[in-house]
């Protein structure tokens, strides 16, 4: 697969604040990449630089092999930008809104009509074509926003917090649209705070903090990082207090909480299979009547926070 987005060491400061700090990564064509970071981590600034809306202090970005600083006009033809803020006009219907952007992108006559109809059908806006764009629900506005982004049929879609503020139904609809777009071979670059959703939608995740890259890879890779902690649920056919006291003395593990079903949950610093086997062996050797020993899947949010705390990042807590 060829590289569609190449970000090479970009930095951007606003006065004393370093919004983006030597950020580098690559995204292959047809990939769906989730861009994750806390508020103020530099996500939007990095995306704006990618979309030719901001000039970096250093570094460069290539979209489909085209340097966005050297030839922004050419790069813009390859990408669609959907900002977190919904930009609309008063007294303009959904159809007029898309028709205007179609014209602004250079479409005319039959081609314009075809493109607008296609986009309206894809985003299910055709049923509300005559409604005022300013009076749509949040979910409809997001679909209209996506429709506008799709008008020039870009190869790369950069979506900033597209699911923010949507109700569960609208969120599912939006997720379906993203899946359909991914199936057409478009490269999607999506930022969001809702990690679980990105986990479902994205092929890989890119975490940034304080403007710097902290992880780039799949969610599974993040959860199963070598040496990353895991939660283990232990049930014994006896009172839990002696086991809790034993856990407190055993190196590398600690009591996390007591599960609703009465089991004890422990946090194991090294979640490798060998280490888990050693702990189970030790518990059995200590004479506890173990009836349940279950490794729990760590949530992406927990893995992210844990990773930040290990890297000493300021947003870890």
């Amino acid at each position: 697969m060829s590289t569609t987005i190449r970000v090479a060491g970009i930095s951007k400061s606003f006065g004393p604040v370093k919004a983006v700090n030597r950020l580098s990564f690559e995204v292959s064509s047809g990939q769906v990449l989730g861009f994750i970071g806390a508020n103020g981590a530099g996500k939007t600034t990095a995306m704006r630089i990618m979309c030719t809306l901001e000039l970096p202090d250093e570094g460069f970005v290539e979209i489909c092999g085209c340097n966005v600083m050297e030839n922004p006009a050419k790069a813009r033809r390859r990408l669609g930008w959907m900002p977190d803020a919904y930009g609309s006009y008063t007294a303009v219907s959904v159809w007029e809104y898309l028709d205007f952007f179609g014209r602004a992108y250079g479409f005319r006559r039959a081609e314009l009509k075809r493109r607008v109809d296609e986009v309206m059908a894809f985003t299910a806006l055709d049923v509300i074509a005559d409604q005022a764009a300013a009076k749509l629900s949040k979910g409809q506005k997001q679909r209209l926003c996506l429709g506008r982004t799709l008008i020039p049929d870009p190869e790369v879609l950069v979506l900033d917090e597209p699911a923010a503020g949507l109700d569960p139904k609208a969120r599912i609809e939006f997720k379906n649209l993203v899946r359909l777009l991914a199936a057409t071979g478009k490269t999607l670059f999506i930022s969001s705070h809702i990690l679980s959703e990105l986990e479902e939608m994205c092929d890989s995740l890119l975490f940034i903090d304080a403007g710097s890259l902290v992880h780039h890879g799949s969610s599974e890779k993040l959860k199963q990082r070598e040496g990353s902690p895991v939660l283990v649920r232990i049930g014994i056919d006896a009172p839990l207090d002696p086991l809790a006291e034993w856990v407190a003395l055993y190196p590398g593990i600690e009591c996390y909480d007591r599960a609703r079903n009465g089991n004890l949950r422990i946090r194991v610093e090294d979640g490798s299979p060998a280490c888990l086997a050693a702990i189970l062996r030790a518990i059995l050797q200590a004479g506890f009547p173990v009836c349940d020993f279950h490794r729990e899947d760590i949530r992406l949010e927990d893995a992210f926070v844990d990773m930040l705390s290990k890297t000493g990042a300021p947003h870890a807590h």
Partner: peptide, 16 residues
């Protein structure tokens, strides 16, 4: 030299 500073031959929209 930094490409961001010297090679912007077209219209980057944002500006400090």
């Amino acid at each position: 030299v930094s490409p961001a500073v010297t090679s912007s031959d077209d219209e980057i929209i944002g500006s400090d």
